[in-house]
Amino acid sequence: MSSYSVSYDTLDDKAYQNHILLGVSRTFALTIPQLPPKLREIVANGYLLCRIADTIEDEPTLTLEQKKSFSNAFTAVVKGQTSAQSFAQSLYPLLSDRTLATERELIKNTPRIIQITHGFTPRQRTAIERCVRIMCEGMPQFQNTASLRGLADMEAMNKYCYFVAGVVGEMLTELFCDYSPEANHHCEELRRLTLSFGQGLQMTNILKDIWDDRERRICWLPRSIFEQVNFDLENLNPNHYHPAFGDGLQYLIGITHTHLRNALTYTLLIPPKDVGIRRFCLWAIGFAILTLRKLHQNLDFSTSQQVKISRRSVKATILLTNIAASHNKVLTLLFNLAARGIPLIPLDATKIDGKQSSVLKAP
């Protein structure tokens, strides 16, 4: 029996939140504790709410109508408009064994997470509620049409990344600026970069998980990119590498690289005194750029395990970024060393406040 299925009743709500986080995300369970305590509690709570929204969308036995109904109900729960207990009691029995046991437990204990949410300040709750609402509205647009054909084009990929990661970045930016008066001075610049940050992390995951997604009969790659190199995504096969696929993959790696550079720029705008927030961002960026380097060096990979960074790399990233966390020039040097040799594809210029900038806008 999993250790996450016992002893919940002996934990208070905040202790339960910390405990379940370990069960549903190894990465965030590693990075969130780097944040200052007050911010740590809010970010962990926001992440778990997003994970509940993900669980609804990922449960394979729910019909599209059920998913829509539960997503709408969950949005109302987060806003305090309907009962969290009723939501949990209705959804939990419908979850299959194909949903992780820890995620099923999270659904069952939704009221405990919501109890914490409703104790936050109005600005904090607004940021969290907006994130959950947009995520619950946006994800079904893609889940309902997901197939091995992939997404239509980069615009569709941008939108998908926004609904699953960009909105989370927007939430985090608002929470960071609410917590830190110094960060709040740069809030507009942080907002301008946050979607690119989220997209860089999400595109890294999409590229790494190509074959895992394919087993689920899903592909999140943009067809138009591969059509330009005369490759049909429906012909993708882990046992047969095609150089044209590698060309398309390299292009997406280059775009992802540019987004991760924007993520570094975002992080360097966080005041050095807020070192916990910097570490939270830097670890995620470090893991992503090292994964991207492995992808670049192994275009013919056939399992996600082949491009997963080693524990040694994880430890080195943590050590080096902790040492250099307050030193912008050193952090830039470390990023450049990690990114050496990875292609860099400029993003399409987007007008923001009348100026040209290589960042994204929300759909």
Rank of each mutant, 00 (worst) to 15 (best):
M1Q: 12
S2M: 14
D13R: 11
N18L: 05
I20T: 00
G23H: 11
V24K: 06
F28L: 04
I32E: 00
I32Y: 07
P33R: 15
Q34E: 03
L35M: 03
K38W: 14
N45M: 02
N45C: 05
A53T: 02
D54T: 03
D54R: 08
L62W: 09
L64G: 12
K67L: 03
F70V: 00
F70I: 01
S71T: 03
A73I: 08
F74Y: 09
V77Y: 09
V78Y: 08
S83Y: 08
A88R: 04
A88C: 04
L91W: 05
Y92D: 02
D97G: 14
R98P: 01
R98N: 15
L100A: 10
T102G: 08
E103G: 06
R104E: 00
I107G: 03
T117C: 09
F120Q: 01
T126V: 12
E129D: 05
R130A: 14
C131H: 11
V132R: 06
V132Y: 06
G138W: 10
F142R: 12
Q143T: 11
N144W: 08
T145W: 12
L148V: 07
L148N: 12
R149W: 10
L151Q: 04
E155R: 12
E155D: 09
A156V: 03
A156E: 02
K159C: 07
C161Q: 04
F163P: 00
V168D: 00
E170D: 06
C177Q: 04
C177H: 11
S180W: 04
N184S: 13
H185K: 15
H185V: 11
H186T: 05
C187V: 09
C187G: 10
E189H: 09
L190K: 05
R192M: 09
S196T: 03
G198M: 00
G198S: 05
T204W: 14
L207D: 02
D209N: 07
I210A: 12
D212C: 09
D213M: 02
R216Q: 13
R217C: 08
R217L: 15
S224C: 10
E227W: 12
L233E: 00
E234F: 15
N239C: 11
P243K: 14
A244D: 04
F245R: 06
L249Y: 10
Y251S: 11
I253A: 07
G254K: 11
T256I: 07
H257S: 03
L260T: 05
L260N: 04
N262I: 01
L264G: 02
L269D: 01
D274N: 07
V275N: 12
V275F: 15
R279M: 07
A284S: 12
L292E: 00
L295A: 10
L295G: 05
D300L: 11
F301N: 02
S302G: 07
S302E: 00
Q306K: 13
V307W: 13
V307C: 07
S310E: 02
R312D: 10
K315C: 10
I318Q: 14
L320K: 14
T321M: 03
K329W: 12
F335S: 01
N336C: 11
L337K: 10
A339R: 07
G341D: 00
L344N: 11
I345G: 13
I345P: 03
P346L: 06
P346G: 07
P346V: 05
D348W: 09
I352Q: 08
I352N: 14
D353T: 08
D353W: 08
L360W: 14
